[in-house]
């Protein structure tokens, strides 16, 4: 169980996340929705402390996450894997090394600096890749892959961490509808088969409705909605999105809904890393 008590993030002049209090039980798939700048990413990145909270507290199974430091903090990050919008893989390394980097926490200084991974870790990484249909690319350089493929590799990296929570920060925002569906299906499968808690930032409504058990809506740093997809009426959604409501409702852009004519030309995303 992940508990948030008045968790806050303030930047110099603005408050990105205003005191947030809620609880996520184990094994739930949660979608956080809201317009850009609503504080979704900040909230998510506070969970694994890539962004430091400026106030409040976070508890996981009763353990205070906000107080962790050094090795304990790294252990927590290892327990709660993250998938990013821009994949955040190391483009110049091959796919399997990227996946195996999910095991780095368990390495000592010398084996990680030398880049030595055990046969067991290789096998583990290949199985994770195979689960996402990417085993055939294991020895390719990562920056030769397409966006959808990279995101699947990133999920494989997250899986080999053997996490208890999976965070996904706009995992499909850079993908075309077909790849978006593959990635969301994979996250849902991980949630249902492995029983992992999945917390996912999404910017399209229908994806959140289709895949999540629970939807949290944010507006200007405040949680304005928290409920099941059924409870999220059009009126409630319009309140979350405000002026951007029409965009969010014309769900053709990067949603997972594959409708005829819904596919729009996607600008090619070039990943420089």
């Amino acid at each position: 169980m992940l508990e948030f008590n008045d968790l806050t993030k303030a930047f110099h002049s603005t408050t990105a996340v205003k005191p947030a209090t809620f609880t996520i039980p184990d094994g739930q798939m949660v979608g956080i929705i809201g317009r850009s700048g609503a504080g979704k990413s900040t909230l998510l990145r506070m969970i694994n402390r890539l962004n430091e909270p400026t106030g409040g507290q976070m508890l996981f199974q009763g353990r205070d996450i906000t107080a962790l430091r050094g090795r304990e903090l790294r252990q927590w990050r290892n327990e709660c894997a993250m998938v990013f919008q821009q994949f955040n893989l190391v483009g110049r390394l091959n796919v399997i090394t990227n996946v195996m980097s999910g095991r780095l926490f368990h390495h000592n200084f010398f084996s990680s600096m030398a880049g030595v991974f055990s046969e067991k870790e290789r096998a583990f990484a290949i199985r994770a890749l195979d689960r996402l249909g990417m085993a055939h690319t294991a020895l390719q350089q990562t920056d030769t892959l397409s966006g959808g493929q990279m995101q699947r590799v990133a999920i494989a990296r997250a899986l080999v961490q053997e996490p208890r929570i999976m965070l996904a920060d706009e995992p499909i925002a850079s993908l075309d509808p077909l790849n978006a569906k593959v990635v969301m299906d994979a996250l849902r499968a991980i949630n249902q088969q492995d029983g992992l808690t999945v917390i996912c930032n999404l910017h399209t409504l229908d994806t959140a409705r289709q895949y999540c058990d629970r939807i949290i809506g944010m507006q200007e740093g405040v949680i304005v909605f928290d409920g099941t997809p059924k409870e999220l009426t059009d009126k409630a959604a319009r309140e979350i999105y405000g002026a951007e409501a029409e965009d969010a409702f014309s769900e053709a852009m990067t949603s997972t809904a594959l409708r005829p004519g819904a596919q729009r030309a996607q600008p090619e995303v070039r990943v420089v890393n």
Partner: peptide
């Protein structure tokens, strides 16, 4: 971005440099 990725798997500063920056 790769540095963020390595940080998120629980890598320390040395691992972030070795895997996130050095290959680039």
């Amino acid at each position: 971005r790769p540095v963020d990725g390595i940080k998120a798997v629980g890598g320390n500063w040395f691992e972030q440099m070795r895997y996130g920056i050095l290959p680039q």
